[in-house]
C-alpha cells in the first residue's frame, strides 16, 4: 500500500523521523492557510448564532439568547418547505442530472475522432462557454429566452404546436423550479464535463485496446473499463457539487428571489433574507449553522461510505 516501509532503511533513525514528519510538512502550508482563513470566521459564525444582533451593531457583542435562534428556525413553518426545496428541487435533481448529462457529454467529447480531426482543444474550450458567462448575465439571458411572448423557447414550443400560448415559466408554480434548474444545470454542467474529461484523458488507451482485442464492444468498454476508473473523480464531484449546490444562493436569488410568493425559497435565501432584509444577524447565522450541520452530516456519511472502500 504505502511506499513508506520499503523505502525507509531501519539503520537510519534520523531519516525515519524525517520520513514520518514528511506528510505533515507537505500538508502544512495548505492547512495553515485554511486555518487562518476559515477557523476564526467559522467560530464567529457559530457564536453569532447564539446571539441576538442587528446588522447595524456588528461591531458590538450581541445579546446572548442561548438556543432561541435555533428554536425559531426549527419551529418556523416555512423552514420545512425551504428544506424540501433546497434538498430535492435545488440539490438532488440538479446534481443527478448534471452527473448523468455530464458523463454522457464527456464520453461523447472524448471520442477519438475529435483528436484525430484536431478538434479536441476546440470542443474542450467551447464546452466552457456557459461556465464563464457571469451568473447575473446568464440568468438575464435565460429570462429573455424564456420570455412568455417573444422568448425563443416559447416561440419554438408554439411553433411546433406543443402549446397554444407562451408560458411565463418563472411566474408559474408549475414551471418555476424547472426553469431555475435549467439555468443552474446549463451553467454548471461544463464543470462536470471538463473534470470527467480530464479523468478520461489520463486513462491509458492501451486498456481500451486490450479490451477491444479481447472482443468487448464499445458499451462494455465504457461500463466495465472506463466507469470504474472514473469512480474516484465522480466521488469527489458528487460530494462537492452537492455541498456547493445546497449552499447556493445565486441562481434562486437572481431568477426569482424565492418567489413567486415563497414558492422557491431555499435555506440560503432564507438565511440571506433574515440577515440582510430583517437585519437579524444572529437568526441568520443560526440558519447558516443548521445548513452547515446538515451538510457536515452528509459529508461524513458520504466520506465513510465512499472513501472507506479503498
Amino acid at each position: 500500500m504505502s511506499v513508506l516501509p520499503t523505502s525507509a532503511p531501519a539503520e537510519e533513525p534520523a531519516h525515519v523521523w524525517g520520513k514520518k514528519l514528511e506528510p505533515y510538512l507537505l500538508v502544512l502550508p495548505a492547512m495553515l492557510i485554511l486555518a487562518f482563513f476559515f477557523a476564526g470566521p467559522a467560530i464567529y459564525n457559530i457564536a453569532l448564532a447564539f446571539q441576538e444582533l442587528s446588522l447595524f451593531d456588528l461591531g458590538r457583542e450581541g445579546r446572548w439568547v442561548g438556543f432561541d435562534n435555533f428554536a425559531e428556525v426549527l419551529t418556523d413553518p416555512s423552514t420545512g418547505q425551504s428544506l424540501i426545496n433546497t434538498t430535492v428541487w435545488l440539490t438532488v435533481v440538479t446534481v443527478v442530472l448534471r452527473l448523468v448529462l455530464g458523463l454522457g457529454l464527456a464520453l461523447l467529447l472524448n471520442a477519438t475522432v475529435f483528436s484525430r480531426w484536431k478538434l479536441g482543444w476546440l470542443v474542450r474550450s467551447l464546452i466552457l462557454v456557459p461556465w464563464v458567462t457571469p451568473p447575473v448575465v446568464a440568468v438575464a439571458a435565460w429570462k429573455w429566452l424564456l420570455d412568455a411572448r417573444y422568448g425563443v423557447v416559447n416561440q419554438f414550443l408554439v411553433g411546433i404546436g406543443a402549446i397554444e400560448q407562451g408560458i411565463p415559466f418563472l411566474a408559474r408554480t408549475s414551471t418555476v423550479w424547472g426553469a431555475i434548474e435549467t439555468m443552474l444545470i446549463w451553467r454548471e454542467l461544463p464543470f462536470v464535463v471538463i473534470t470527467i474529461l480530464a479523468a478520461l484523458q489520463s486513462i491509458p488507451s492501451e486498456l481500451r485496446e486490450a479490451a477491444r482485442i479481447d472482443g468487448a464492444n464499445e458499451f462494455q468498454i465504457q461500463t466495465r473499463i472506463v466507469l470504474p476508473l472514473l469512480k474516484p473523480v465522480l466521488a469527489v464531484i458528487t460530494l462537492l457539487t452537492t455541498i456547493w449546490t445546497f449552499n447556493n444562493f445565486v441562481y434562486v436569488w437572481l431568477a426569482t428571489r424565492g418567489g413567486p410568493g415563497d414558492y422557491t425559497q431555499v435555506l440560503a435565501t432564507q438565511m440571506y433574507t433574515t440577515s440582510f432584509v430583517d437585519y437579524r444577524m444572529g437568526a441568520g447565522a443560526a440558519v447558516g449553522v443548521v445548513m452547515s450541520l446538515i451538510m457536515f452530516a452528509f459529508a461524513l456519511i458520504y466520506f465513510f461510505v465512499i472513501f472507506r472502500e479503498k
Partner: peptide
C-alpha cells in the same frame, strides 16, 4: 502517497468542512 499518517482522516474532513459555512456570514 501517505495513506496512514496520524490525523489524515481528520485533516481531510476539515478540508471539506471549510466548504460548509456560508460566505455571506464569514465575510464580516
Amino acid at each position: 502517497r501517505n495513506r496512514r499518517f496520524r490525523g489524515r482522516q481528520t485533516l481531510l474532513i476539515m478540508v471539506i468542512a471549510t466548504q460548509l459555512f456560508p460566505f455571506v456570514i464569514l465575510i464580516t
